[in-house]
């Protein structure tokens, strides 16, 4: 870092852009989309079918919504130097709660509140373990990760039947409906994004999270209540996972705790990391996290349209993670630089 800043004066705007943290993820997204254009000539085509927009670009955004929602919350938790492995389980629990309350005959708006409330409660649980009891985040959230899907199954079994399906105009409207040609869930995602952005950037919460993640004891001595801030991050993460739960559950209109949102925690963490935040905490890049989620979905979509088997997706994702992480590692950068300088000679 320091060697970069020393040459500050000799750098033009071009190198400033090249070195900006946002540049590379956005370039990566563009490259993926451009390559897609070569693979499939009508990739960029957007049609109107049955009163809504259709097309690959819309589809990428549409499918990226759950990951993006979870990743927004994850970005805050990672900002505190933590991690939340339980988001998939939280989604499963939310789905079960929705299905349960529908069978109990609540109004759909109340059901929505129930589902989000369930997400918040899960966040409170994680927050108590991490901030209250001081258990390492990865361990503390493992507990809910292991048992959460079981809790979902249990809620289902309260009123009999496994994977009960349901109909809910409100929730399905939010998930699969559309307003003015645009899928409703994009509005939901935008609203959650905006809400969280306002919450962290229009209050001091974001700064405090970054301070706690950067150096918890410094933050504490500076007067920041590190425990409370950490707790709050997990609660917000639970809420975001709750929203993702609503969208995903309404999409498949059934509660399927075992297989819903499998590996979503990994995608969400990946999105945050691709967005430029370090797992060592201390920074939140909310906008770039969305870009990260879009990159992940764009990769998946490209593999689909390229005719490769969808299963290659996992390997591609892994290679992307490794590549991003290697770029973040000083040792690896040095090794690569040495190799290059040898090649030049």
């Amino acid at each position: 870092m320091s060697d970069i800043s020393q040459n500050n004066t000799s750098m033009g705007w071009f190198s400033a852009i090249i070195r900006h943290r946002s540049t590379w993820p956005i370039v990566a997204l563009c490259v993926i989309l451009i390559v897609d254009g070569f693979i499939s000539p009508n990739f960029y085509e957007i049609r109107i079918v049955q009163g809504r927009l259709f097309g690959n670009l819309i589809d990428i955004m549409y499918r990226a919504v759950p990951t993006a929602l979870v990743a927004i919350g994850m970005a805050l938790v990672i900002g505190t130097k933590g991690i939340d492995l339980s988001v998939g389980s939280i989604i499963a629990i939310c789905g079960a709660v929705i299905s349960w309350r529908i069978h109990a005959g609540d109004t759909h708006f109340v059901i929505l509140l129930y589902a989000l409330g369930a997400g918040v409660m899960c966040g409170v649980w994680n927050g108590i373990l991490v901030a209250g009891m001081g258990i390492q985040p990865i361990i503390a959230t493992l507990i809910l990760m292991v048992s959460g899907r079981g809790v979902g199954l249990l809620i289902n079994s309260l009123y009999g039947g496994t994977n009960p399906s349901f109909e809910s105009p409100l929730l399905q409207g939010l998930s699969t409906g559309h307003i003015w040609l645009i899928p409703t869930r994009l509005f939901v995602a935008a609203a959650v994004f905006l809400g969280i952005w306002l919450l962290i950037r229009r209050t001091a919460l974001g700064l405090f999270i970054e301070a706690v993640g950067g150096n918890a004891s410094s933050a504490n001595i500076a007067g920041v209540n590190a425990r409370f801030i950490t707790f709050l991050a997990y609660v917000i993460c639970g809420l975001c996972a709750g929203w993702a739960g609503v969208i995903m559950t309404a999409d498949i209109h059934t509660s399927d705790p075992i297989s819903v949102a499998m590996y979503i925690e990994l995608d969400a963490i990946l999105a945050v990391v691709i967005g430029g935040a370090s797992l060592a905490g201390g920074r939140i890049y909310l906008g770039m996290t969305i870009i990260g989620a879009l990159i992940i979905q764009a990769l998946t979509t490209s593999i689909l349209i390229s005719g490769l088997r969808p299963e290659y997706n996992l390997v591609v994702k892994a290679v992307v993670v490794l590549f991003v992480l290697l770029l973040q590692s000083a040792n690896a950068r040095q090794a690569i630089a040495t190799i290059f300088s040898r090649l030049k000679r």
């Binding site: 950067g214 150096n215 201390g282």
Partner: peptide
């Protein structure tokens, strides 16, 4: 115990 190295001067000052 004092600084948060990643944060800017401005952010550290107003914390």
């Amino acid at each position: 115990e004092g600084l948060i190295g990643e944060l800017s001067i401005r952010e550290n000052i107003m914390l």
